[in-house]
Design a protein around this nucleic acid. Structure first.
Lengths: 225, 225
DNA sequence: CATACGATGAGCCGCATGGGTGATGTGCTG
DNA sequence: CAGCACATCACCCATGCGGCTCATCGTATG
């Protein structure tokens, strides 16, 4: 079973190059080409490729929008190809948008030709593949985003809050009133008020609503769970 | 400049195989081996490799803990190698923990030998590389985690808030006072209070602090930007 | 031992906030 | 046209909350 591929890129020479490279493989068939996103979507709907090689920057409709349309097809369209994004420069936004859209891979055009060929095979097999530099960013992002519930943003660490004050802040961010916080911590309400006063002063906040915002923005508490 | 590599794996035969494979490359030197995580860390501290090939499952200290120690070294230790994790099975938890720890790559042992070699080069160059199946999971996780600011959680949609009320809620979640909201929307403060009263009633909340919490939890506002 | 810091608590004050009720105007819909 | 949802605003009231000052006590830290 050969892998059916279409190539969407606004530069005819690039299309020709890729087509020649891929068509030379016995297990890959180039079944279509298109010079922009809009035509790319049309060609894909007609040719039903397994893999769409999609340039990011194109006139008419860019590769990101085209990828979105192919990967989230309207009712009635059942064909859903794998999309392998290609770009000359690796700009973060492109990468993230493409991955969000559901692209199966993201390669730089300066990658070795062998990489492109193996990428097509990998993507056709339902797996995914990224350029090493993109992988590094994604990992860095992943590690930064959830370094195991981290409990303290930089802002929080440098705020000078004492442990007790931090504890009170968290309860504020859970929606408790002063009285409830007092009960929860077995304190007089007045003590809670003192703590809160210091928290607001140290963080430069006006009221508990802003304290809740700070708690979320700093990572003290996290949406979900 | 050759790439210095050490191999940490509890199976002697695997170590020998990888060592032979890598040593055959003119740009790669195998400068050490270890049969478990603990010794692996020691060997790494002594041999200062550029890249550590680290098996996940090992006696004494597993590869994840060893990776953590290498990538977050104690004071005084300045050497910080790249870590390339290897495993026979690709278990999610391993992958995520390894990436959190700061590993530069994650390969399955059944990958083609050429992949391992190129992976070492990629990682040594400061980039990252993952097995295609791992990449697919990471992308899926990424896409699921942030499917573009979604703007409305189910709770929000079914809350029955009018557009104006939603608008006011968002400003509350930005930390504005009633007076500031009034100015921002060009309203009398009393009108703002009316809106807020309805918001709190409809959502079953007590005060604006809880409203802020709701806004974050429902996705109306999002931490960061 | 002196000092500093954190936790606890009291008292007082003023205002923003939230609850309740009611009124007006507008636009959509049956 | 009647009815309804929505947005707008007024008046009143009780109080939760935040600001400010001051005091006690324990524990580090020098």
């Amino acid at each position: 079973m050969t892998i059916k591929v279409i190539i969407v890129d606004d530069q005819a020479m690039v299309r020709a190059g890729f087509a020649a490279l891929l068509a030379a493989q016995s297990d890959i068939d180039v079944v279509g080409e298109a010079p922009d996103g809009r035509e790319g979507v049309e060609v894909s709907r007609r040719a039903h490729p397994d893999v769409v090689l999609m340039d990011v920057r194109m006139p008419e409709m860019d590769g990101l929008e085209a990828a979105r349309q192919l990967l989230d097809p309207p009712r009635g369209v059942t064909h859903r190809p794998k999309v392998l994004m290609l770009t000359t420069f690796d700009v973060d936004d492109y990468v993230y948008e493409a991955l969000r859209a559901g692209a199966s891979g993201f390669l730089l055009k300066d990658a070795p030709p062998a990489d492109l060929i193996s990428a097509v095979r990998v993507v056709a097999a339902g797996e995914a593949l990224l350029a090493p530099s993109v992988t590094r960013r994604l990992i860095a992002d992943f590690a930064r985003q959830r370094p195991a519930p981290r409990r303290d943003g930089p802002a929080l660490r440098r705020s000078g809050l004492t442990p007790r004050e931090t504890e009170v802040l968290e309860l504020i961010a859970r929606g408790l009133s002063n009285q409830e916080i007092a009960e929860s911590l077995v304190l007089a309400e007045q003590t809670v008020k003192t703590h809160i006063g210091r928290v607001l002063a140290k963080l430069g906040l006006r009221d508990r609503a802003q304290a809740v915002i700070f708690a979320y923005e700093s990572g003290l508490v996290t949406p979900g769970q």
